[in-house]
Design a protein around this nucleic acid. Structure first.
Lengths: 230, 230
DNA sequence: TTATAGGCTTAACTTTTTTTAACATGAGTG
DNA sequence: CACTCATGTTAAAAAAAGTTAAGCCTATAA
């Protein structure tokens, strides 16, 4: 049941990180280890994960900040915090960000596994399989092949077109935050990257206008939202 | 959000039970307290509950046995265990039965609430689609598409126009508090945002004047009120 | 190496959306 | 009734986004 679940583990303590990774792998889970928040986010934007285990205290970017960035891009992915501090305020902050669970060190690895299981039982199945075929109205989209299947024929997407469209589709009907998207795809949300993103939005709109039910709507000052009218 | 959630709390310690019940009630949750496992089960079969908080050690019927009985009837209802023992084996047994969470006493009541929230977020089917079609007199309004259907034709609304109109419609015949609205839409209720809002009210009035029965009335010093005369 | 093509960014210009300003009106208060 | 403050209204200014094309890398072919 939990097979092929890709977990992102952000943990700066190498010993603990390796230990957890080995344990979870032995239980059939696929764990990618990132040594700090920044690296974890870079990994996350690849879009291959369906579960996050985040240490709260890490160099570069702490777990809470990382979780907020992740939540901007994926409102639904389960997040479990690990922390050395048992402080009530921290826990509440973690849950406020949208955590699913909050585990205080030291803990039994079996308990971690049990909690992952408990959360996954309720989590919406994230079909982020390797070879998924996404649907945008009457147009189909294969992110892994960077391919868009239009009525008029197939269209190969560039890296950026593909990344942006993937994020839009995965957040259909929700606002894709401008800043967070820039950081996720461009690495930095400066003015020029923003203009670059606007150019890509124009390109995608042009491609998708084949189906008039599809709209990439702008939410002024916030970001973009993909909508497919019924 | 968690309003009208009926919680079954099985707890033999009367002090703690009453305390928890009072706290959760103060947060808008409806809590039924049962003093042992047997009574809890009798309550449960009434079918009115959508969340269970079960103490593990209770007379008559312990929490694990109770949970199993409950699971026979409802495979899906969230279950959170409370226990005085922190023993690893017990926790694992709890999760094996299908618990969603397992909290060891003593705990902060706020943490309990946060955990209930975290679970409910996933347990409640996500009907956030809200493709609703609202009516303002003879004019119809689709906030999801930011579209106003006038007799003279369709009108696309801007982000701010849409947000403000949505709030007005959802509070039809009630005063939409000025400050609260500013904070909700503009994030801050300073003077300039207030003037900006007045400009938008003027714009909306202009659009809606097609139907003379519609009025956006000002309540001096308080806010605005949308009224549709019969 | 130089040429070329593809992909991305930057620039330039346009349009849309939002904010600010300026002036008018109206409501509440001493 | 005079004064103040909140709101009505319109227009100008500013900011954000839409669009198209030119420029600039970089990888690959000639």
């Amino acid at each position: 049941m939990l097979n092929q679940l890709n977990i992102l583990l952000a943990e700066d303590d190498e010993n603990l990180g390796n230990l957890l990774q080995a344990f979870l792998k032995s239980k059939g889970l696929n764990v990618t280890l990132a040594k700090n928040g920044k690296k974890a986010f870079e990994q996350f934007v690849s879009g291959e994960f369906s579960f996050c285990i985040l240490d709260v205290m890490m160099p570069e970017m702490d777990g809470f900040t990382l979780a907020k960035e992740i939540r901007e891009i994926d409102k639904n992915i389960p997040i479990l915090f690990l922390t050395a501090k048992a402080m009530k305020e921290d826990k509440l902050e973690g849950f406020a960000i949208g955590a699913d669970d909050y585990l205080t060190k030291p803990f039994a690895m079996e308990e971690l596994l049990a909690r992952i299981n408990a959360i996954m039982r309720r989590a919406v199945p994230n079909n982020s399989q390797e070879n998924e075929m996404l649907k945008i109205g009457s147009i189909s989209f294969e992110p892994h092949l960077r391919m868009l299947h239009l009525i008029s024929g197939d269209k190969k997407l560039t890296t950026k077109e593909n990344q942006l469209l993937k994020l839009l589709v995965k957040n259909e009907n929700e606002i894709l935050d401008r800043q967070a998207t820039l950081r996720a795809i461009w690495g930095d949300d400066n003015y020029f990257n923003g203009r670059s993103m606007d150019v890509y939005i124009a390109k995608l709109r042009k491609m998708l206008k084949e189906d008039p039910a599809i709209e990439i709507m702008n939410v002024h000052g916030k970001g973009f939202k993909l909508i497919v009218k019924p």
